[in-house]
Write a protein that binds this DNA or RNA. Sequence first.
DNA 1: GCGATATGTTTACGTTGCTCACATGAGGCT
DNA 2: AGCCTCATGTGAGCAACGTAAACATATCGC
Lengths: 168, 168
Amino acid sequence: MGMLEAGEQFSLRAIAREAGVSPTAPYRHFTDRDALESALAAEGLRDLKEDLTRGRELASSPDDLAELAVAYVDFARRRPALFRLMFGNACDEGNAERVQAAAEIHDLLGLAMTTVFPDGDADALASAGWAFAHGMAYLHLDGKLSAGSDQEVADRIRTAFKALLSPA
Amino acid sequence: MGMLEAGEQFSLRAIAREAGVSPTAPYRHFTDRDALESALAAEGLRDLKEDLTRGRELASSPDDLAELAVAYVDFARRRPALFRLMFGNACDEGNAERVQAAAEIHDLLGLAMTTVFPDGDADALASAGWAFAHGMAYLHLDGKLSAGSDQEVADRIRTAFKALLSPA
DNA sequence: GCGATATGTTTACGTTGCTCACATGAGGCT
DNA sequence: AGCCTCATGTGAGCAACGTAAACATATCGC
């Protein structure tokens, strides 16, 4: 599979149509709409992981962590439908690929956090960092935070992250 | 309106059916499915705000802030479908009620943050705190963080929050 | 070559959001 | 009273969706 949908809407039949194929053809490849979504989600998670990795060494400073959050939100903003797909469904234990891809994201962020803060509670820091980035992503996707240019958004995320780390 | 759906699925027709009324009756009261969702969302946001307020004085310590996050996630876990409704749609400027309800949540959290950290960047702290709680809520809803009992979840959120505030 | 497997097609059913034309009932006006 | 208006509910109907079943074909191992 290649570049997957930046657009907003998503229906099995529409996909079939776009692929120039009969409406039920996808069922030869995916048992279910959910199965298709999970496959897309898994690929999306891998893409996100690559975005968080590529051209970046292991995080070594809080600033590096902030950049991770920026990249995370940037991904969500560039591919909102896919991002929602990646996280929107209740945990789908059925698709091992997907579960693992999600776990890898968690581990990646966790590793970064504990590298920068080796004396902190690794698990807590991993979850907290992920939650921050994830929440920022969703709040921006849903327009709950003023939007502005990519630059502005990125700056606000950096500022917010640092504010949390040393809040007074 | 009263207690609104803890269940998962949600269709206009199903609501009409459950209300013992014809499938098109709801259209007399809401122009649109989106309009109905927005109304539910607005009420949900007010409920959430009350949850974050009731039986609680203005936050005065980081621990109080952690409790806010716990309450936030608790709401999401108790009423997942509603929570998704409240935030799931792209920003719907059309419904002023809803936009305002969301803004009130933001302000509430912002006020709490700046009360505890009067010297910090108010805006950044507000967004950051919200993002943390929001991300935690979604990650738990989507099963991306190990679940466990309510107690365990609450404890992990407290721990994570404090880990972020003083990470080493 | 031949049979299995992978892939695709047609047809069909039930559900959904939504529109439109129509009924009905309660209130206020003169 | 009588009437008119508005709010509410109904019914039939449309297009789109997810899904299932029965049927076709093509590709590949033997």
